[in-house]
Design a binder for these strands. Sequence first.
DNA 1: ATTAATAATGAATGATAATTCAAAAATAAA
DNA 2: TTTATTTTTGAATTATCATTCATTATTAAT
Lengths: 195, 195
Amino acid sequence: MRVKEGNKEKDIVEAAVDIFAKHGFHKAKISQIAEQAGVATGSVYLYFKNKDDILIKIYNSLWEKLYNELLTVTRNEALSPIEKIDAMIDLIFDMFTENPSVTIVFVNEQENMNRVSGDKYSLFYEKFLDEGEKVIKEGISSGMFNKNIDLKIFRHFIFGSIRNLLHQWAITPDKLPLNKIRHNFKFLIKHGIMK
Amino acid sequence: MRVKEGNKEKDIVEAAVDIFAKHGFHKAKISQIAEQAGVATGSVYLYFKNKDDILIKIYNSLWEKLYNELLTVTRNEALSPIEKIDAMIDLIFDMFTENPSVTIVFVNEQENMNRVSGDKYSLFYEKFLDEGEKVIKEGISSGMFNKNIDLKIFRHFIFGSIRNLLHQWAITPDKLPLNKIRHNFKFLIKHGIMK
DNA sequence: ATTAATAATGAATGATAATTCAAAAATAAA
DNA sequence: TTTATTTTTGAATTATCATTCATTATTAAT
């Protein structure tokens, strides 16, 4: 019997990330993804139920990875709350540094993923932020962080700003060095703009 | 001769905002927009070149309004830099408070608008941020703001955070009062999270 | 070698929905 | 009234792809 050669599923995902980043999910054609992955159009459907399924699998693996790394940070009792915040920011930046296309898809297709995945997307998002929120709570009880800040507001604040910065970086990676962005970002989150 | 009755263009735009917010630009059907606007499908094409054109006109008018209001703030010499920042934040919040659907479209369809409008979207975005940046510069020269903050980074930081907060509010307007969000937001921008 | 699976292909199918346009409706002017 | 002009209609046209599936290719086992 014939046997699978190479890793077509991986090839397809990688091509899809590229094409989704370039044209957006809705304008991306399965035939083009297949071509770039070096397989026939129909083969895509041997590995994925449909077009939505490709997007879902991309997000699942990203969130999975993000969440697992987050846990290693939040569970590290050697770190102070502020060190944990830094480590969390690093984790997100590191995750996306490798690949601007992945970043663009993650940032741009959130809404499509949301629509396509039932409530899977928002579950990931909330679970991640819930875990991160624990760190903020620690920081407040330890007296390091300002206790008047609403936790729900802060989580959307920080996620929105990081998302937009990564996006802008990913569009033109050479315009601003990611390390400078990261450094400024950490400062702004901690101290804001006023002296 | 027959004469135009009512304001069909406005009816279509309002319906489109609603439908775009509910289903997203690509899943939104012209026939459904027409139905909700109380006109025939074909009539949409008397007022708009095509579907893209509807989105473009929505954004144009939003950015136009945002930019004009920004100018009245930045040109007001009676205000200190920090008062201007507050006024700028108020202006954006006020703009979107009225209508969650407009907010959702503005936030979600940015990328489609970008693809569809040539570089019109990014011109608006940059023009707006350039004008806002002047205020930050004033704040730095007057010694109020921290001079180590990169202006390009700050603009994407603040825009991303405000965008996400408005989005989360618009999805479930009753979950968090917008005034509380606004208040926390102003504080975080100025002082960050640390005591 | 031959067979029996399984993998892979890509042209054909089908569904969807944007856009067009010939016909109908409305009304200002004659 | 009738006419001329402009607006509106919505069914027909058209374009675009996602998805399917009959066919072909490949190779492990016999």
